[in-house]
């Protein structure tokens, strides 16, 4: 067993200045302002008025009503009736509360190289960034020394196969594909066989985007999972949901429904560079026992890194140094 994180961290330490990624994360999550707390809290108590201001800002970050209530309750408990010293105190408190809620979910993906291939099935709604995530993951895993193959399991959308093939070329990894309209389960089965024959460490399998309320498409996904397990009962080893941070509370319904259908083992959140703050992860943390794997903050392959609860909480709370 190798841990991607451990390697990734050490890689980065050697190559780039420390904290490069999280600096970018903070910068990009609304230019370092995080929730953009309009402060002026010093000297006040956490009374109803202040709580409402905080709630408002949490809601604006897509945290959702329930999670916002829980965050405020936790902050009240920690702060008691004491007056607030400074705005930074509120931010730090918020960061601590958020990090506590997220910490259990910060479990990095670990590739078991004995599986050969270790199959990662990437699922999600249309336009969430599945194919791009696969492209970035392929690059990342390859840089870490794994041999990687891709499976073009989106046989429905026009040119989805070519889009994945472009990522394959860019990263110089082989892509197993069939013609448009082919049975996705068959494509992924073939890819598993091919990856096994070539002794590839990791197989990244793309799937067509599907809205979680389409029973037929969700059943198709169940079939893909079933068939992927024919050669190796443990496959797909990772069933990763890709969530678009610019979507709101619907992300919860997505996670719940995909989890019900295939039993997710990981969640990756994309597009955090767009201005959306991804607060829905806080709501998700309370509802689902699924690890958060990666977050994406840009179009480049290196704009994706392992989910870190403290760094994410700090960025959400708008704290400069994690």
């Amino acid at each position: 067993m190798f841990s991607i994180t451990m390697r990734a961290m050490s890689d980065r330490d050697e190559q780039k200045p420390r904290g490069g990624f999280f600096k970018r994360l903070r910068e990009r999550m609304n230019r370092g302002r995080g929730l953009g707390l309009t402060l002026g809290f010093a000297g006040r108590k956490l009374d109803d008025e202040l709580a409402e201001e905080l709630e408002t800002q949490l809601l604006m970050a897509d945290v959702g009503l329930d999670a916002a209530d829980r965050i405020l309750a936790a902050m009240r408990k920690k702060l008691g009736k004491a007056a607030i010293d400074s705005d930074d105190q509120v931010r730090a408190l918020l960061r601590d509360v958020l990090a506590d809620m997220l910490r259990d979910h910060a479990q990095p993906l670990t590739v078991d190289t004995s599986a050969r291939p270790y199959v990662i099935l990437v699922v999600g709604v249309n336009g969430s960034g599945k194919t791009t995530t696969i492209g970035k993951l392929a690059r990342r895993l390859k840089d870490q020394g794994y041999s990687v193959m891709l499976a073009a399991g989106d046989t429905y959308r026009a040119a989805a196969i070519e889009q994945l093939q472009a990522w394959g070329e860019r990263n110089d990894v082989p892509v197993v594909a069939q013609q448009p309209g082919a049975d996705p389960a068959a494509v992924i089965y073939d890819a598993c066989e091919a990856a096994r024959a070539r002794g590839a460490d990791v197989l990244l399998a793309d799937t067509a985007g599907r809205l979680q309320n389409k029973a037929g498409l969700m059943a198709e996904l169940e079939k893909v999972v079933r068939i992927a397990g024919k050669l190796d009962p443990a496959a797909p080893h990772e069933k990763m949901l890709v969530l678009d941070s610019s979507l709101g509370q619907n992300a919860i319904s997505q996670a719940v429904e995909f989890h019900n259908a295939v039993g997710l083992t990981g969640i990756t959140m994309t597009k955090l560079d767009g201005g959306a703050k991804g607060g829905v992860l806080v709501a998700l943390a309370a509802q689902l026992d699924v690890p958060f794997r990666f977050i994406g903050v840009g179009e480049q392959a290196e704009d994706m890194d392992v989910f870190d609860a403290d760094a994410f909480a700090a960025a959400l709370a708008g704290i400069e140094s994690a």
């Binding site: 610019s246 979507l247 201005g275």
Partner: peptide
């Protein structure tokens, strides 16, 4: 625009 868009939709 995606009908599932969240709070940032207004800013977008």
């Amino acid at each position: 625009v995606d009908s599932m868009a969240g709070q940032d939709a207004v800013n977008v």
